[in-house]
Simulated assay, not measured.
Amino acid sequence: MQDTHIIDRVSEEHLWNQVFTRQTGADFFYAVSTMGVYCRPGCPSPRPLRKNTRFFRSPTEAEAAGFRACKRCDPKGERARIAQDVVRDASAFIEASDEVPSLDVLAKRSGYSRFHFLRMFRNHTGLTPRAYADAIRARRLHASLANGNRVIDAVADAGFGSESRVYENTATLLGMTPGAARRGGQGERIRTAFADCPFGRLLVGATAKGVCFIGFAEPDEALMADLRRRFPQAAISTDDAALAGTVGAVLDFLREPRQALDLPLDLRGTAFQQRVWRTLCTIPPGETRSYAQLAAMAGNPKAVRAVARSCATNPVSLAVPCHRVVGSDGGLTGYRWGVPRKQALLEHERALSAGPKPQV
């Protein structure tokens, strides 16, 4: 049996209040009789008069009553779906191209003007096509260097015109020098320690600078393989005694979460990734933020996809609490260690914030 719709449960005055305050995510639509259009409650159009406002459960109901979809808020999501398809096609075309396609070529391919295409691409990726192409080449460069290829060869394979471009922008592209990326941890020692935690096995890895990896909820072999993939050339050794305090801090955090784990960290990523990871640490336990909110907090409201990728590549789960980021509708989106664990972490944090202290 389906749940009763919101319109059946609350008064029209309550619905009107959501329209007046432009609430996003509300489960109804409103129409303006004098304009002949219907909208989402969060529509940025000028507010209608209350006497001219009607409420509907769905676009189908509104259209049956003779109203057409608003072009500003796109209540049926049709324009948004078209834009997503255009951006998805352009992104695939950029990725498959040896050279960075010009804006004119991309716009012509999309069937839109240069200005309209650029705006669509920025709105959906948070980047210009040029910046998106640079991000792809940076990823290829990092992968090539991690495989041990010479810097000059990796630069050429990734599609950069010269080494000077890479060295001028190492912080943005790699978060480290090309030589360090190529070495993949060569010459470094990573100490590791396993432990049992409420979600199964836990692996902590640390360099001389600080914790560089925290993984959990997988078999020992899988956790170690993940660490080796990130540092393929490093000397990895077990050192339970040296990491006893660090492992204890992680276990304490699981029992009673805080805003962030107070541990020295060795985080390696681009300048943008570093900013996102630092911002994640400001989210209080028991609270969540959407990817869009996190992007705004990190100083780039349009970079929602880039923020999501930064969360997905977070090497120190728990210490950098990416489990506190959710979808725009509040839904639990993908999590490296499994959505059920993400839900359990959030529920545990909320329970502790509310007062009782159940175990995870």
Score class of each variant (00 low, 15 high):
280 L>A: 01
299 G>D: 11
159 G>S: 05
241 A>Y: 05
118 L>R: 06
65 A>N: 09
91 S>N: 03
165 R>S: 13
39 C>F: 06
247 V>E: 05
279 T>W: 02
177 T>H: 11
318 L>P: 00
271 A>D: 10
343 Q>V: 12
155 V>Y: 01
7 I>S: 08
228 R>N: 08
271 A>N: 01
19 V>A: 01
217 A>T: 01
33 S>M: 10
260 A>D: 07
342 K>N: 09
181 A>F: 00
161 G>H: 08
101 P>D: 11
264 P>Q: 11
205 G>M: 05
149 N>Y: 12
199 F>P: 03
96 A>G: 02
349 E>D: 12
139 R>C: 03
70 C>S: 04
351 A>P: 04
263 L>S: 07
339 V>Y: 02
160 F>N: 10
48 P>S: 01
183 R>K: 14
209 K>L: 14
318 L>V: 08
269 G>A: 12
91 S>Y: 08
204 V>N: 06
329 D>T: 10
201 R>M: 06
152 I>S: 14
251 L>C: 10
152 I>D: 10
187 G>N: 08
195 A>L: 05
26 A>G: 02
309 R>T: 06
346 L>V: 12
184 G>Y: 12
295 A>C: 07
151 V>P: 08
100 V>N: 13
258 R>F: 00
144 S>R: 04
28 F>Q: 12
219 P>E: 12
190 I>M: 09
160 F>A: 00
273 Q>E: 15
186 Q>V: 07
281 C>D: 04
65 A>Q: 15
353 S>H: 04
210 G>S: 03
311 C>V: 15
204 V>M: 08
136 I>H: 07
149 N>P: 00
74 D>M: 11
315 P>Y: 03
338 G>I: 03
69 A>Q: 11
331 G>I: 05
161 G>D: 14
219 P>V: 09
103 L>P: 01
218 E>K: 15
233 Q>C: 12
331 G>E: 13
347 E>H: 10
41 P>S: 06
56 F>I: 11
270 T>F: 01
339 V>K: 09
21 T>V: 07
200 G>N: 02
300 N>P: 02
42 G>N: 09
39 C>E: 06
321 P>D: 11
136 I>A: 07
223 L>F: 03
208 A>Y: 04
323 H>R: 04
107 A>K: 00
155 V>F: 00
110 S>Y: 06
258 R>G: 15
245 G>L: 11
249 A>E: 13
318 L>N: 00
145 L>Q: 00
309 R>W: 14
209 K>H: 14
310 S>I: 08
271 A>P: 02
255 R>Q: 12
337 W>I: 00
97 S>H: 05
344 A>R: 04
32 V>H: 03
248 G>V: 10
296 A>E: 14
196 D>I: 06
220 D>C: 06
331 G>A: 14
76 K>W: 07
100 V>A: 14
172 T>I: 11
116 H>D: 05
211 V>D: 06
133 A>L: 08
317 S>F: 08
345 L>I: 10
108 K>H: 07
332 L>G: 02
174 L>A: 00
153 D>N: 12
346 L>H: 11
265 L>Y: 06
89 D>R: 13
220 D>T: 08
163 E>L: 13
20 F>L: 09
237 S>D: 05
